[in-house]
Design a protein around this nucleic acid. Structure first.
Lengths: 244, 244, 244, 244
DNA sequence: GATGAATGAGGGTTCATTCAT
DNA sequence: TATGAATGAACCCTCATTCAT
């Protein structure tokens, strides 16, 4: 239940009901057609970037006429913004679910770190982020909104998680906000910039992510872990060895 | 002595002398005119991004005729690449000098981290990086080269520095490559993505950078510092307190 | 029935019906608009030649927007080629019909020679041929195709005709292919090069063509006519004189 | 003594003397430099045609500066016209010399016809003629002058030759002007149009020209030869057979 | 007098947007 | 309401011509 549905979608649910009730939806109000357009736009915009994407490409890809697109979206820019909103939703949906389970701290952090690193560095998501970043000068609010409703919300959830761990005595952190950013960036260490600048041409392997995230969590826990954590972890260690 | 000056600049120095000596420089060889063009291109490209920038804009901004630009640069892409090379040179020049002084480990790391964080998050540099990232879809090698000759070279220097500290027994690091990335990303914790997505609309303040870098260095040293380092640091502490 | 209508025209006929039946024709399929463009292109291309003609000129002359032209024709070259195909069709259509009637050899040859000479040396056709020739360096296949489907087809029909006359014993010819070329060039004696180089600024008069063609046919028949032909011709002469 | 030197060349001879006498020639008056420019222009214009040739190409090919070209020729068009004048001179120079020898009529005609056919259909000359023809719409006098001072002069010489033969009783011709054109076009039967339209992509072979010209001369002599000619030729035949 | 760097109008082509159907 | 043919401004780039050197 992260990523609360934006108002627009609520409106559209209403319209959807309308269309079921009354037959054909009002101009620019059919959510099915809207999705169709956005889906076409996604393929084209993400693949080519904002400028290189042509409305004709999108028309073809979406299977709707040019005129129809302009009924739903005032212009290319607005269509792009709507797409980015959708993309953001898709990308960050469920990304933070793992933080709801709080059994083992290190394990949870590793699990979360891996999910994060995989998502953020996946080819598709890197493409999308590049497209957003490249459009920042042209539409500054776009990037801000993307970050605010995407990474920032995740960041807030991570803070909640860390505060819980602090209260359980497992972590000792002065500046939780900063620590949360540190954690995220440790999990992405080197990866994000390498990917976003296309220095890496493909997403990191499973092993690489494992290695980076494990190391990142270790660094994080060495810096912020308490004696309680250490005790608990050695406990587990002993139990594990006993099992063998 | 990092960022060895590229041949081009040497050539141009020669040409500058030529032009002083012999009058009019050869076609496409006048460094003053070249600078004029690059300066115009900088304003336009950095402001609008590669695609949205038009050669007419650059013509106007640079104050030279269209034909002249095409004497100095074969096409829009080459002009853009030349600009990015210049920017990269400017941005990363001297950024790593502080690593040459190895007196006090923590102090050096903090000093370096601050320089890094300031540079990378300065408004101008963020703009430039956005422009590069936005052009990655069209000219992938551009971003790769930018990263390779910019951040990557700094990364290599940092590795050299860390290895020296390891040899001096101050640090204990398994994967120095990864640790160097961790260090950099700790110093930029949160900042880079906030800035690049225009979530932050202005560069971080001096205090903020101080805080983030200090914290980042602490995390790093807690994770990788040895007892020798701790001993030396407590030594200094005592000496410092004695002074008071 | 020479110059079999190309498929395109058939398609377009279909489209014409479609447009009458169903309203607006598909993109690049409206034969009226296509004609409009070709007509504009004709005026400009024939007047200035391929290179000197600008798409702006054609736009203006055709009274359609630039974009529309590019819907109907991929580029300047294709538009030009389409125009030349049309011209060729127009020029050579029906030019060889007279060869179907084989009553009197000399009369038929004279009739045919006159049609040929008139067509080929008419101001419009000379202009068109100059345009084709001028474009040969840039689009060599264009000229070859023009010749092959225009003069060459006529040449082949003339060969068929001559072979028939040979079989009827009226002509004795070793190399029919060469003889056919000789006949054509005798009918155009001096005219073609004078016209094509603009030494003559206007098409030859009726009298001139009559004179040249009569003479040409005489030369040809003196060279290739048999005794049978001579006998038949003297027969006719006697009959003609008897009538007087 | 065909191809009377144009006034310009006389002027230049004067200038040449001047330059020998007084050292450096006046601006735009050095015949050596003029030739140099024309030679460069030849290579470029003939190869690419008028429009596709760029003044830069010519500059490079001629090895002189742009400014210099504009001292000698007011603009691209004038340079082109000057080149065509030169080309014409080169092409038609000596082409008609064979008509000066009047020993054996048929042999002379064959020899002349071959020279004519070879020259006119040689790759270089076809190229040049295409260039002229293509420029006819743009500069109509150019083609007229080319024909007048080239083919037409040859035509006149041929008429003189034919008249001499008529006077010697070898030929009987009503319209010598027309007959001369017929002769020329018989020697080029099919070739000229095939070549000029690039239907033939290479010049005809020696054998082909031999065949066409022999046949053309035969046709011509069958049409216009007298009994005297026939008698003389059978004489030669008998003599020839006797020799064997 | 000769040079060639600089100019800028104009080249062919694309494509976001409109509006008649 | 949905369509997609038509528009024309703007794109990148070339090149004949000029004029400071």
């Amino acid at each position: 239940m992260d990523e609360t549905p934006p108002d627009v979608e609520n409106e559209q649910c209403g319209d959807l009901l309308d269309s079921v009730r009354r037959g054909r939806p009002a101009a620019g109000q059919d959510p099915v057609k809207r999705s169709q357009i956005i889906d076409g736009a996604r393929r084209v915009f993400i693949d080519k970037g904002f400028e290189a994407a042509s409305m004709n490409d999108i028309t073809r890809e979406a299977g709707v006429s040019k005129g129809t697109i302009y009924v739903y979206f005032a212009n290319k820019e607005e269509l792009f913004e709507a797409l980015i909103e959708e993309e953001r939703g898709t990308i960050f949906k469920n990304m933070y679910d793992v933080l709801d389970h709080t059994d083992d701290l290190r394990k949870t952090l590793v699990k979360f770190g891996k999910v994060l690193a995989f998502k953020i560095t996946s080819a598709k998501v890197i493409q999308a982020q590049r497209t957003v970043i490249g459009a920042c000068d042209r539409i500054p609010e776009l990037g801000a909104r993307f970050f605010e409703r995407g990474p920032k919300r995740g960041h807030d959830k991570l803070m909640v998680f860390l505060n819980a761990a602090i209260e359980r005595g497992m972590l000792r952190i002065d500046d939780v906000d900063l620590a949360a950013y540190q954690f995220t960036d440790l999990c992405l260490a080197g990866l994000f910039r390498q990917c976003i600048f296309a220095y890496r041409t493909k997403a990191p392997s499973q092993e690489e992510v494992d290695h980076i995230v494990s190391s990142g969590v270790s660094v994080f826990l060495k810096a912020y872990g308490t004696e309680s954590l250490a005790a608990e972890e050695s406990h587990q260690m002993i139990a594990l060895e006993a099992k063998r």
